[in-house]
Amino acid sequence: MSKVHVTTSVNGDEVEFLADPRETLLDCLRDHIGLTGSKEGCGTGDCGACSVTLDGTLVCSCLVLGVEADGKRVETIEGMADGAELHPLQRKFIEHAALQCGFCTPGILVAAKKLLETNPNPTEEEIRYWLAGNLCRCTGYDKIIRAVMDAAAELRQEAA
C-alpha cells in the first residue's frame, strides 16, 4: 500500500505529509499534521464539525481525500484568529454564550466566516440555511444565530 506525498498550504503554511490514498483530509489534518481543531462528528458529511475551506470553498474535510489537497490551500479553525486577535465571530461566540460543549464550534465558525465573506448582511433565515449542515446538539442554535448576526453587524461597521 504505497503512500502519496502531498504538498499543501494549511493556514498559509506550506505543509507536507504522506497520505494513504484512503485517508480523508480530516484524517490527515488531525493525525499527520496535528491540527485537531477540525472534528469528526459523523464521517459522512452530515454534521459539519470538520468544516474547512479548500481553495476558498467551504467543504467537509471528511469528504475530501488527503491526496486531493495536493497543491491546494486549506484553511482551518486554527488559522481563523489573527495571531492573538480573535476573529469577530470567535469573540461574539464567547460573548453570546453561543457554545456549550464546544465540539461543533470550530466547524460552525469556519462555515459562518465563509458565509459573512459571501454575504456580509445575511438574514436570520439565510444564516439558518447556510448553517443547516452544521449540527449543534446543545444550544438549539438560538445563541449561535445571534452571535453570527452580531459579528456580521460589527464586520459591516468595520468595513464602513
Binding site: G45, L58, C60
Partner: peptide, 9 residues
Amino acid sequence: VGSTQIQGR
C-alpha cells in the same frame, strides 16, 4: 443536495 459544505463538492 446536502449542505453548503456538500454543495462545495
